[in-house]
């Protein structure tokens, strides 16, 4: 599949919001991707990999204005939410993952191997960050954005992955393969009813 080589394609969202799953879906569909597994290989927190560049430290590069977007035009890269604050002027198409905040916090605690004593504060902080970044990208003239609901993708894959397929705007994308890579077994931090 070929994407527009004038555009930078980004998967984003809060950390642990399902950005890696979106990258898996896009890769399965045949979208050109850029990531490295060497500096941050798959582990128990992300068994299928992190799909990150710069060993997951891309935010530092963006803050230092030391990241070359021109090297990644026409390909999907992953930049988690806070990094989008430092996005230079360009031409972007962003798929932004949204997930139940409690699940995100559970997953963050598990990954950092901590019990967050200030969880209520962390929750407020990340809701605020999420709102700020969603407002920011929704209001930039150089950004087209699709908000993808992680929980909805897992509960109803077909209509929700179809939205991603439509956003790609390429008939070469393999919708069946995209659907096939949703793995409910990895949905480990779901809030139990």
């Amino acid at each position: 599949m070929k994407l527009d080589e004038n555009v930078n394609y980004i998967v984003s969202g809060l950390e642990r919001s399902g950005t890696s799953m979106l990258m898996q879906i896009l890769e399965a569909g045949g979208a050109p991707m850029a990531f490295s597994t060497e500096s941050r290989p798959p582990d128990n927190n992300n068994p299928k990999g992190y799909f990150e560049l710069e060993g997951g430290k891309i935010i530092n590069k963006l803050m230092e204005e030391d990241f070359s977007f021109s090297d990644y035009k026409g390909k999907f890269i992953k930049i988690t939410a806070y990094g989008l604050k430092f996005l230079p002027v360009g031409q972007y198409r962003i798929i932004y993952s949204q997930r139940e905040i409690e699940e995100i916090l559970d997953s963050m605690e598990k990954m950092a191997k901590i019990t967050d004593e200030n969880r209520a504060e962390t929750k407020k902080l990340f809701i605020k960050l999420n709102n700020m970044i969603m407002d920011l990208i929704s209001n930039r003239d150089d950004v087209e954005v699709l908000f993808a609901d992680y929980n909805a993708i897992l509960s109803e894959p077909e209509p929700n992955i179809r939205k991603i397929y439509d956003f790609l705007g390429s008939e070469e994308a393999d919708l069946d393969a995209m659907l096939g890579c949703v793995d409910k077994r990895l949905y480990r931090n779901r809030i139990k009813r």
């Binding site: 941050r40 997951g56 935010i59 806070y82 950092a112 902080l125």
Partner: peptide
């Protein structure tokens, strides 16, 4: 308020460092 305060932003960075997303 739309923007994160400096204090909020420092806390976000702390969390992201703990998760390995920042140096």
């Amino acid at each position: 308020g739309g923007d994160l305060s400096k204090e909020d932003e420092d806390k976000v960075k702390e969390r992201l460092k703990a998760l390995g997303y920042m140096d």
